[in-house]
Simulated assay, not measured.
Amino acid sequence: MEPAYVIITVLTLVANGAIAVADFARAPFVLANSAEVGVPLSWLPWLGALKAAGAIGLLLGLLGARPLGVAAAVGLVLFFLGAVAAHLTRRVYHNVAFPAGYLALAAASLGLALAVG
């Protein structure tokens, strides 16, 4: 297995696992960001579940279920494209780097998974 694939994918799954926990815990920064971009608080458990599912899928991909890892990476790319779009639509530019960073990690994980595949 390629070291770059493993390192980037582990970073991606840890980052998404951590932000999923923050969503479930309703961390103050999550609540503030959600309010700024117009995300209803009732969506937080669902958004956290999607991020957690992506992280678990990436882990399973590393453990041998490569198609599941690719699907998880695709899902995370789509999720964070939506997050970046929400920030841009609402003109919340001061922290768009955060979802863009998650998007970059997910895209890198996807690209590497396809390259190693």
Rank of each mutant, 00 (worst) to 15 (best):
R66K: 15
F29C: 00
L68A: 14
L11M: 14
V30N: 03
L47S: 11
L63D: 02
L31T: 08
A115Q: 10
V77Y: 03
A86W: 03
A55F: 06
A4R: 15
Y102T: 03
L112R: 06
N33G: 15
P45L: 07
N16F: 05
A32T: 13
Y5H: 14
G111M: 04
A55H: 05
R91M: 01
P28E: 11
A15D: 04
G101S: 11
N16A: 03
L110E: 07
R90E: 06
I56M: 13
L62P: 01
I56C: 10
A15R: 02
P99Y: 04
P45A: 11
V70P: 03
T9H: 07
A20W: 08
A27Q: 14
W46Q: 07
D23L: 12
P45W: 11
V10C: 09
L62G: 13
F79V: 05
I7N: 09
A25T: 12
A108M: 13
G38T: 09
P45C: 07
F24W: 15
A18P: 00
F80W: 13
T12N: 14
P45R: 05
I8Y: 03
S34R: 01
H94Q: 11
P40C: 00
V37L: 04
F98K: 13
G101A: 08
V6F: 12
G69P: 01
S109R: 06
A22K: 13
I7W: 14
A20S: 15
L47V: 12
A104D: 07
H94G: 08
I19F: 15
L63I: 01
G38Y: 06
E2M: 12
W43D: 12
L81D: 07
V39S: 03
G101E: 11
A25R: 15
N16E: 11
A107E: 09
A55C: 09
N95V: 08
I56V: 15
V70M: 11
F79S: 06
